[in-house]
Design a protein around this nucleic acid. Structure first.
Lengths: 187, 187, 187, 187
DNA sequence: TATGAATGAGGCTTCATTCAT
DNA sequence: GATGAATGAAGCCTCATTCAT
């Protein structure tokens, strides 16, 4: 009985995973609007109706996907990120890790797809604000901790600096999209 | 006869202008895919068919619009940009001007709309590459000129620095879209 | 074993009852076409597939439901209907009872739903013809019996009169659906 | 120029008429829910999109159709209805005319389709209330005028009587739908 | 030049029904 | 007996585009 249930459950989870992965890929490649539910389901090998077994609508799905991907990215980062005693080293670690993760799969295009929607949809905007708050808080805390071990001037607004570093990363990724030759040499 | 022709031409240019302005606004507000030709033409006050008098297709129109806007932005910038003897001052001037122009109208969202398409369409990607080349060349040249007057180390890759400064600006604008409180204090 | 079977049978009858009651309510509220099998089963608390354990299809189910409801209505009526020696009193009794039953539950809307389908489906039309035949026969027989006790002219077509009285009731119920203030003062 | 405009206008009116006529027929035959926009447009010989040139949605169209048909019915009735000095004659005239119009086209089924929706949609309910108010007012006024010429008891509630006569007509039409042999011999 | 009418193709969503468990 | 997963078919609606005037 429990095994049976497990089997059905597994089957559903499988289709779920499949849909999410496929959609991520297609959204990254063609954008949200140019990717139809039909496209997603044909590529996943399930019927269109199966999509609506899992999600209420295409829009609701996008929100879901965002949460899923953003959280996944954060988790992977936090799992691997190792702060060091040396501030510079910590920053370099962080940047290196960030760009590594970014290059995996099609993270950058899907991420800018999130951005694009955040500008026009308040619910999505909130999600992005939360996401950025987390990064800024992290970077900020690194600087704060470094205040005691390194000679950081007290006047430095750590949040502003964190924000700018993140801006730099995003802007770099943006340019990277149209100029793949661009290479950053972290360290 | 020539006067007549002139009149017609003027009229056509007027409707052209009108369409482009309206479309820019709507694309900025709702994005390319969520803005229909119908929307644009209803808002401009012309009939839908008039659109196809001016442009071959919606896609071709987007290319037009991009060229038009990008060129306009560049022209406004170059018209007002005043390099100074002092490098720092020149940079600050440039940044201040850039952010001023950026805040006008709905430049940032329409600009990221261009980005979004550049990632997926080679023709548009080329336009964006050209655009960025120009900015990088400009910034780069500023640094080169400064080499003689300021003590810039010869090892500095001026193109890389230019690229990073631009990345910073774009990244900042990106964050600004979801966090309007963000304020940069140039200078 | 027999007890077990009985238990199962009872269970099945229970779910059957439940489905029919729920469906009646939903059909009355929203109409047949606007009520999905899903709606019915969610509201009854059973799974969608259970529906097909009991019925072959939604259409076949509607037939079931009609028979069930029509018979139930007739039974309730005939159980309570008491013909009297006095014709007028008998008629008033009948009308009063009819309107009482009609006001219960959501009889009127579900009944007109039957009508709606009877106009377009021959099988359902037959059911309705049978139903009406019964009523007309009943009313007719009342008049016939009254011929001896009251001074009914022999020329009266009792079936036609019966038919018209029933028409009056239906028409009244119809108006009642959109004008709840309408009140008949039987007697 | 005016002629040209007229031609276009005529063309549009033609397609409009065509759609409305076809839809009336199909709604009468198969009911609103079982008639798709596709069905209507295939039968009218226009493309599906043309439907949305004229109407905002299928629902809005139904409202429109109702208004159109109800008004048409009323107009035809009032055009032909001739009140007489003799009350009985006037009533017979009215009934005869009513049943004549009712038998034309597929008035009865489409009319009960309106009813069916009126029970579940407030906007449609209002339309039907208005419609009935008109008939009751008409019949009522006939009785009022008859008070002076005929010996109508002052205690008669003319509105109630009007309402019941109309109920009778509707109920008769209802039965007529499933029993075409039913014939009323007015007069 | 300008436009209103018309459309084919496609997008999102729902639903009655089947089937493996 | 009961159910969750899955689906083919169909429904409503939108949109970029064409064409006759």
């Amino acid at each position: 009985m429990s095994a049976e249930k497990n089997k059905q459950q597994l089957k559903k989870e499988l289709s779920y995973q499949n849909i999410v992965e496929t959609a991520t890929k297609l959204f990254a490649q063609n954008g949200y609007d140019k990717t139809s539910v039909d496209d997603i389901m044909k590529e996943s090998g399930y019927s269109k109706a199966t999509f609506y077994l899992h999600f209420e609508s295409k829009d609701e799905f996008f929100l879901h996907l965002m949460d899923y991907r953003l959280k996944q990215f954060e988790e992977e980062f936090f799992k691997l990120f190792k702060p060091e005693n040396n501030l510079k080293q910590t920053i370099l670690n962080g940047l290196r890790l960030f760009f590594e993760l970014t290059e995996r799969d099609l993270w950058a295009p899907i991420f800018f797809e999130f951005w694009s929607h955040a500008m026009r949809n308040d619910m999505i905007k909130e999600r992005m604000q939360d996401h950025y708050s987390k990064w800024i808080r992290l970077a900020s805390s690194v600087f704060e901790q470094a205040r005691s071990t390194e000679n950081l001037p007290n006047t430095i607004n750590t949040e502003a600096v964190a924000s700018l570093i993140i801006a730099l990363c995003d802007g770099f990724n943006l340019q990277n999209q149209i100029n793949a030759n661009l290479k950053i040499d972290v360290g």
